[in-house]
């Protein structure tokens, strides 16, 4: 009884995502520069979004025919086509949730960029250790 190579490769993908989560959390929490924190935060949110997409994926119906995106390509769909489609299409719900999360994440990041810029204009530094020492 050996291991399934496909399962192993997919688990490897999930483990790298966990590692990305850990590294970017370290970046957000421990790095001194505010700009570095913003970069790490974007990686953190992208990784969380990728987890959602991975949850929506499914095993291939057969080893030679891949799943299809959740888009109906035959109008009007016949009963046979719908059976074929639902046996292959991936979960559309995580994709819909991630879609809005990415755009709103960009807007919030832009706000953080402006906050960093404002802090630099007032205190002449983006290093949190030096900002913490400043009074007022």
């Amino acid at each position: 009884m050996g291991i399934n190579i496909d399962t192993y490769l997919f688990n490897l993908l999930i483990m790298t995502l966990f590692a990305n989560l850990a590294i970017s959390l370290y970046g957000v929490l421990a790095r001194p520069s505010l700009i570095k924190k913003v970069i790490a935060l974007t990686i953190l949110s992208d990784t969380a979004n990728t987890f959602a997409i991975v949850v929506g994926y499914r095993m291939w119906p057969t080893p030679t025919s891949p799943p299809v995106p959740p888009v109906i390509t035959r109008i009007p769909p016949s009963r046979e086509y719908m059976d074929w489609f639902t046996a292959r299409a991936v979960d559309p719900l995580p994709q819909a949730l991630v879609l809005t999360a990415i755009v709103i994440g960009l807007a919030v990041t832009l706000f953080l960029v402006f906050l960093t810029l404002q802090i630099y204009r007032l205190y002449r530094t983006t290093d949190v250790r030096r900002i913490a020492k400043l009074k007022g």
Binding site: T7, I14, V54, Y57, P61, T86, L93
Partner: peptide, 27 residues
């Protein structure tokens, strides 16, 4: 990942059928 795979033998990741909610949306 190897340890995880060995511990999870018999359990398929990713699943071969989507969740019921996904089937509702797809149909």
């Amino acid at each position: 990942a190897l340890v995880y795979t060995l511990g999870a033998l018999g359990y398929r990741v990713p699943p071969s059928t989507p969740r019921d909610l996904a089937m509702v949306y797809l149909t």
